[in-house]
Amino acid sequence: MCRAKRASRQPMTPRLQALSVHLFTALGAALAMLALHEAFERDWAMMAIWLAVAFVVDGIDGPLARSVDVKRNFAEIDGVLMDLIIDFLTYVVIPAYALYASGLLPGWAGWIAVLTIPVASVLYFSDTRMKTADNSFAGFPGCWNMVVLALLVVTPPWWVTAGLVVLLSVAMFLPLKFIHPVRTDRWRWLSLPVALVWTGGIAWAAWIGFASNPALTMTVAITSVYLLLAGIVQQVVPQRR
């Protein structure tokens, strides 16, 4: 019995740890299905919540994977490829459907967006040049989940939404920089708090069922504009050495 107790206290092997991280990453696919179900049900608040949980998993699995060296200890599964597949579901497919089904882009404009966004995004996700030297993104990084969640709060006229979709689809393939609020060093002291305020605003909007709230709308609009344009401004304003 003592031997059994000692055996049960043995730590997980590196290979088992790596497999556990792969399974944690794969959980994002299940979260994507839950979000898609809520989108079919037109429950945008619950869709937002599941997408947010998937976003948290996406943020955690990378450091976990590096800490247990999954490339070495469980190389049979490509964690980067798996992450991209899940990101394509949560960042592109579900938001594109929600853009049409929510009425933000009704009729023919919605169908064009539903077909255009995945095509442009799959090309971008396959581009090996999508990262810049300062850990930003070269071109709009296909974060359509953030775009759609912000639009559900702001609810602009359909033609404004259509114009934004066109501009961002084109911006994927232009030499424009878009920041990562955590990984981009420059202005991180501002970008990270802005991203946290944006996240809090979206969470509150989902909590109240995306009901009209002028103060919340203004907060999400301002923070969204910053996150969208900060990288381009950094290109225009040279960094002091």
Rank of each mutant, 00 (worst) to 15 (best):
L105Y: 04
P156T: 13
F173K: 00
G142S: 08
G201Q: 03
M218C: 10
F173C: 03
L216N: 04
T116I: 10
W108E: 14
F24M: 07
N135R: 10
M46L: 15
V237F: 08
G103K: 13
V166M: 12
L81S: 10
P95I: 09
F173R: 00
P157T: 14
L36N: 07
L229T: 13
L228G: 12
R188T: 02
W50M: 07
L36K: 00
L31Q: 06
R129T: 12
V225S: 04
V170M: 06
I60V: 12
A30W: 10
V122M: 14
R72M: 11
M33D: 07
V92P: 03
P193Q: 10
T217G: 14
R66K: 04
L192Q: 01
Q235G: 06
G201E: 01
A7M: 11
T155G: 03
L123G: 07
I232L: 02
D127K: 08
P11I: 08
R66Q: 08
I94R: 03
W159T: 14
W204P: 00
P63V: 05
H37R: 15
V80Q: 10
V119E: 09
S67G: 02
L34P: 06
L174S: 09
P238M: 11
D83S: 10
Q17H: 05
V56Y: 06
T116Q: 08
L152M: 15
A98L: 03
P11H: 07
L152H: 09
T90M: 10
L164S: 13
L105R: 03
M47L: 15
N145G: 04
Q10P: 00
A52Y: 07
S126D: 12
G79H: 09
Y226D: 02
V165K: 13
G28M: 04
D83M: 04
F88L: 01
A75C: 09
T223S: 13
K131N: 05
P156D: 12
V182H: 04
A18V: 06
T217S: 08
V80E: 13
T219C: 07
W187M: 12
